[in-house]
Write a protein that binds this DNA or RNA. Structure first.
Lengths: 110, 110
DNA sequence: AACCATACCTAAATTGTTTATGCATAAACA
DNA sequence: TGTTTATGCATAAACAATTTAGGTATGGTT
């Protein structure tokens, strides 16, 4: 289980941004469970990785957060700043293209 | 240029092993230039990354090296140990599957 | 002679992630 | 009613991988 752990590094930020772009607004815990659910437990984003990543993206000004109290628990929602939507698009596309390159590289040895 | 630098981390070992599996025997410098050429300069494996990676794979017993003198320059060829070919197959397949998962995750936001 | 491509290598610094915690609330359960 | 499970945030030490930046050396090109 979690065979993909080693491959995940480097893709975390882009996965976060892609999910944020798709859903508009998400909170950290939701990003983890969403990725997990969408990939049938194949992609496990750990909280220890995702929260620092979100904080860093916010510090860079790419995303912004807003707190909301829901059922007595606080949720911190993140969304992509409009000014950076294009950058995010590019980043997502670049990762997509990268995965295609990797597949082309690996295919001959499969 | 080299937009893929951040995505490369974590995939280096598997790329090396896939190329070695495909070509049978390769030397470090060749692995770098091969990846570069095959991807039209999109995947740049740096020597500072690849040599330590090769040494580590050898220390683990997954690959083995043999030196050869060619045109007055020494080349250190690496190949996958037979006993580990199955492990390598699995690893390559796992990365391939992972890239497919990533594509499925990213697609809705493209 | 200078320079570039080839070919190996290492090591400090940076970075990202894991692992291991901690706090707190709500709901389910026994 | 007390414990566990799920939710939801967070940080920090340790670890691992990679970058950056150097080093050595040979052969071929200008």
């Amino acid at each position: 289980m979690n065979k993909n752990k080693e491959f995940l590094s480097g893709t975390l930020n882009t996965i976060i941004l892609a999910l944020l772009k798709e859903h508009g607004k998400m909170y950290g815990y939701e990003i983890c469970s969403s990725a997990k659910e969408k990939t049938n437990n194949a992609i496990i984003l750990t909280e220890g990785a995702i929260y620092p990543a979100l904080h860093k993206l916010e510090k860079k000004g790419i995303i912004e957060s807003s707190k909301q109290l829901i059922n007595g628990r606080t949720r911190k929602y993140y969304e992509i700043r409009k000014a950076h939507l294009d950058t995010v698009d590019e980043k997502v596309q670049t990762l997509y293209d990268f995965t295609t390159l990797i597949q082309a590289l690996l295919k001959p040895s499969l």
